[in-house]
Design a protein around this nucleic acid. Structure first.
Lengths: 197, 197, 197, 197
DNA sequence: GGGTAAACGAGACGGTACGTCAAGTCTTTCA
DNA sequence: TGAAAGACTTGACGTACCGTCTCGTTTACCC
């Protein structure tokens, strides 16, 4: 039987230092060159302290993300709702395109996706803790549009979100095409046509 | 100036052995445990022979893929064209769902995607040599539908393909949801609605 | 100024448990694999309790020895004195040879010697508290022999003891030769010849 | 089945660098602080190169010794033979006392002895390759003395050597007493008395 | 008999070194 | 001279212990 560490005795200072170091290093070096040793050294922490609390490198990266998100204000999640669905979606999708072009965004997100591809458990955690809340906020906007008669009342909102975001995300992640505001607009057009009442 | 090896003197037997070994090992062990040393050992080849001809592990994986695809018959690429676009797309998308459920498909494809995420050069090569021809075949079917008046004549076929495939691919790659025949059908419905003339 | 612990409040139960655990572990695992952590765990004691009362691992080993010796009856130390020096020495030396062949004797004694080699302070403590009394008992027998005219009256008893024991001890410790009763006898012969009046 | 490395392809340069580094570090830091990592770093060598060719730290230390000895001139081994055994032995024993007082001698020899205590295989190797030749040279001098009628013709030379050296060596190794020229002389006296014809 | 201070068990911490693994380079030998 | 074989340097891995440092919890003395 393996002895579990006692979370109540965990050092919050070390936890923060590790997550901060992980975030910094992933931006500086990229995912491929990220090592546990470097995180420990940068955080001024023993390697064992990382291995004690996280099962894998992917879990550390994930937690670093999670903390990052929690730090941000909550309203970030909510989409604009001016009553004009098309305008709101264009705004949001163009902003997403711009966000994907941010170099500081690259490293960490590619790293996390890379881990998710190979680790089902991490994927589930990602779905629940990161993607879930964000998607819920988006669905809230779509429901509002349904009530306003701008979207089909019986539309499957999960599918709708995928229709809207997956093409964009895939272009970025797999570099399968250029990401431009015009592309964002075209995507919104297609989405609205597909989801019209 | 770096001495380039002379491709004309390359051993075809070694090349085949390396690619075969890579394919086998990626299926047996998965991507994370795939090593150059193991490939060399399995192929009965010196490590230098791999480093001489491929710039990275990703390149070997990619080539293994490429060879695999070339082995298959060419008509695999062509989509069915019965004249009924909806029926044809349902057939194709359901087949794709089934293909993604094949365990032998998992390892290699996830491995390749993982490399593509972190290697722009490989991504470009993938686009040109693997994704390109496949996409072209799909677009041929869509053009046929355009001529038949089943799709908008001015539709952007790149966007169309992404609308159709990206949601499915993303669900599989990032495990963001279940892949069922019903989902394939719903996707086809949405696609047709969006792309209708 | 460093706070000294108060010996009057020391837990005798812990002290005993630590020394017992040390003795057991050194027999079971040998010296190389003996760790403070293992001693603490076996003794059901916090590591700090060991570090509080002993300055080094060698000191613990030494104390374990000391306690072991103290447990034995005091007369063990006294050598037989039948009046026949040669016979008495043969008895003692043959017994020593037999003792050295006892596997339970190996681990702890080699461990202690190993520490002594590298730690002068421990060596001094060993000389005073363990070797000293034993040597004194041996010298008492030799003095008795001097009074009986069997040994030179002006003999250096320290040298005498070394002449008698060092060859035997070295053979055992450094495994430089076989330890047999015949060897013990030969050693006694040489000793008597050298120390004769 | 474990693959054995091929000694014919061994890098002599690395071997020498490792042994030299080991010798230097053991003198500078002492045995307790000697690490494989430090040896590798000092030698400019990968750790694996050490683990590939030596089974243990003790084996490296031993080899460092061996090479050291081989570097020295061969005649070092031969004892002086003026025809006067007593004078020759005094010379040799006093020289030995002086050698033991050399600080550069301490670290390495204590280290080697420490390893020998805990490793029977190393002890055997030591006996054959290091102690053996030296002892043989000493015995040659004693045989010469036997032929000259200065020593008992039937004396056991192994025992004789131990009688002469073990007391001295033990005093030094276990720090059981002071090492002085007078002690060396007393030892020679006792030895001669014991071994006289 | 309750208050308090020190020793205690437990174990998390920052570290060092371990022995292993694989990466990519370099060298030798063979065909 | 390309390729096999594999030794080499490098550097990260995950583990084991080190000695120090909190944590509550006894325990034993003092008021």
């Amino acid at each position: 039987m393996v002895k579990q560490p006692d979370p109540s005795r965990r050092s919050e200072r070390s936890r923060q230092a590790i997550l901060t170091a992980a975030r910094e290093l992933i931006s500086e070096l990229g995912y491929a060159k990220l090592t546990i040793e470097a995180i420990a050294a940068r955080a001024g922490v023993g390697k064992q302290t990382i291995y004690r609390w996280w099962p894998s490198k992917g879990a550390v990266i994930f937690d670093a993300f999670l903390t990052l998100s929690e730090d941000g204000p909550e309203q970030d999640l909510a989409l604009p709702d001016t009553g004009d669905l098309e305008a709101d979606l264009r705004t949001v999708m163009r902003a997403t395109v711009a966000e994907f072009a941010d170099p500081a965004f690259e490293g960490p997100v590619r790293a996390l996706n890379s881990e998710i591809i190979h680790d089902p458990a991490l994927a589930a955690q990602y779905r629940e803790q990161l993607a879930g809340p964000v998607d819920e906020a988006k669905k809230a906007r779509l429901r509002s549009a349904q009530r306003a008669g701008q979207l089909a009342a019986d539309a499957d909102l999960d599918l709708a979100l995928e229709l809207l975001y997956a093409p964009l995300y895939q272009r970025w992640l797999l570099r399968s095409g250029p990401l431009t505001p015009a592309y964002a607009d075209a995507l919104v057009d297609a989405f609205l046509k597909a989801m019209r009442p």
